[in-house]
Write a protein that binds this DNA or RNA. Structure first.
Lengths: 347, 347
DNA sequence: TATTAAAATGTAAACGTTTAGATTCATTGA
DNA sequence: TCAATGAATCTAAACGTTTACATTTTAATA
């Protein structure tokens, strides 16, 4: 099967009794080739089953028309949605996307960046697993355009497309407060990430604006995962005085939280109110339906590619652009006042 | 910023007063270089910020260490899970994965395949959007190893890793029958796909084995999407005689179906039983919890890469291997007999 | 028909590696 | 001290394109 090696432009040229330059011209249809000659060449290509070798081409042209997308967790439904947005725009402009998943590992992320640089991608869109890492150095050195998506990259002047996490968390917390809650817990993500810190900041700001004192016990932390949300909720449940409302910082954590509520028989909507960051599939299946802070994933992806593309095309340098997109509060049922009013002693 | 072009192996060689061959040797640490020389070279690399050009390397070596993964729907949570399995194995063996999403478009799929071939990937794992398409021709011609995952590829002898869809659907239907149901509806996917056909076949077989006559009205079809499941459920709901149980062929369809049940106030577990194909996030949040046919996504991905890798390394051809993995029936609550026993006239 | 401009095609040098095979260098034993 | 050996290093030719520039062919004009 794999006998003779693949035909090259040389073979096509010979077969069509023409020079390689002419073949190249028709492959890239640059015109200036007699119709009859072209026909002969096209025929030869068909006959030999010739496929242009993009590796050789990239080498000569010094562009690959590939952009790398690096995400931290492909199993978090947020990212596929963002990726769709990027892909869609990229395809329109003739770029091909290479998607890689770091599983939140800075080591893997670093490896992937190196590979992408070696491979000569024209640009990178990244949601980093390590905002303070040194792994971006190489991108900067090589002058490869980068757009930071959803998570800030510190100490480098890349373009960024972020969500206004502070505002989102503020809105959510404010909503709970306006519904009459005073004992509002937050399930925080890692403080090593922008979203982790900012969502906490928004929570603090709302409390402060409405003159509700911070209760340290109501601040629990975990990783951005189902497990993180689950165990955080357990912790809250074991408090002497339990909160009457929970704000969860992340979609996966929300799932863990709701699971925990069920397992602990801590009744959502009756004993405890809830708002989560990010809309999730289950939000409309629980009873009551979950109120959430919803991010515009598709817009996020589209904008990210647009910025990247502009950089790729530009030949002069210009200062970084930083976009902050506002999330939208979707009020459903889980944050209503209901009959939750007083603190409940543990049963 | 992007002033002088990137340093090459030449520059490093000059800077370390050594030939490019020696530099190449240390880059690929092949040994046979005096320690002192190596140190000088490493130093030069650091100083110049040299990065090996993988494009040039691939061109010379005629291997890219990249494998392409083509999936039809990145927003279907089934695929990210499978992809994780592939990625994990690939990374272990030093391969880099390029993930592409066709959004179920045969045209896009065809484009992507061509791009991957041009880019010279060492192999491809694909869940095709068009089982009968001609887009695989080029892969075969070029002798690029291919593994078909989850969906069969007809008329080509590629390795395959499939799920025993017939068995899965059979088990589900059988379970419903054993729970006492006779009027069992199926929400089918497109018959143009293996899963679509096979799941229907499994359903038919179970009915036939238990001597339950097929009622055409209970067979509704749609696309593998939330919308497909939703409208199919609507159709069922409008029947003169409604089914007492529904088997849904696909995770997204299940979501649509459950949403429809809610909207139509067709009470799950009371008026209608349910089993879905594929475990989904919401399954444990509904009341009652959903029984499902669960596929081993991770195993699927791992096995697919393993087969691909074997082919990449092999130099002789050997006949295709076809694996059929069995799904597992997870019985929760939604298929219990409950108090559903008789056909209900429309209210 | 001879001249000329324009169009079509060809030549050859790059792009940045890897790698046979050739060459040089250091080390050892006689 | 000198071969002989083995280790270290170098030279140069690929790999398959693109493209500036040179050359040839064609068509148009006088």
């Amino acid at each position: 099967m794999r006998t003779e090696s693949k035909p090259t432009i040389q073979d096509v040229a010979k077969h069509a009794s023409v020079s390689i330059a002419t073949v190249s011209r028709v492959i890239n249809n640059q015109g200036g080739v007699r119709a009859e000659t072209e026909k002969r060449i096209v025929h030869a290509i068909k006959e030999l089953g010739y496929v242009r070798n993009a590796v050789a081409r990239s080498m000569k042209k010094k562009e690959t028309k590939m952009i790398g997308i690096i995400i931290p967790d492909i199993n978090n439904p947020f990212f596929p949605l963002v990726v769709s947005g990027i892909e869609q725009q990229a395809r329109k402009k003739g770029y091909y996307t290479m998607l890689s998943n770091t599983s939140e590992s800075p080591i893997v992320e670093s490896e992937i960046i190196n590979i992408l640089v070696e491979r000569g991608v024209d640009g990178v869109v990244i949601t980093t697993a390590d905002e303070y890492g040194k792994q971006f150095q190489i991108l900067q050195e090589q002058g490869i355009p980068v757009v930071a998506l959803d998570r800030r990259i510190n100490e480098y002047n890349f373009d960024s497309v972020l969500i206004d996490n502070i505002d989102g968390a503020y809105q959510a917390t404010k909503q709970l407060i306006l519904q009459g809650h005073q004992d509002i817990a937050i399930i925080c993500g890692p403080h090593s990430t922008t979203p982790g810190r900012d969502r906490f900041a928004g929570y603090l700001k709302a409390l402060s604006d409405y003159e509700i004192p911070l209760n340290d016990q109501f601040v629990v932390q975990g990783s951005f995962s189902e497990e993180g949300g689950y165990s955080a909720t357990r912790t809250l449940n074991e408090l002497e005085v339990r909160p009457t409302a929970i704000f969860s910082s992340n979609n996966l954590m929300s799932i863990g939280c709701i699971k925990a509520l069920q397992d602990l028989e801590w009744r959502l909507g009756e004993e405890v109110a809830f708002i989560g960051f990010d809309d999730i599939e289950i939000a409309t299946f629980t009873k009551p339906k979950l109120s959430v802070v919803s991010r515009p994933m598709n817009a996020l992806g589209e904008l990210a590619f647009q910025l990247l593309h502009e950089r790729i095309l530009a030949n002069e340098v210009f200062s970084p652009r930083n976009y902050l997109l506002s999330p939208e509060l979707k009020i459903r049922e889980s944050c209503h006042l209901g009959n939750i009013r007083l603190n409940h002693k543990r049963s």
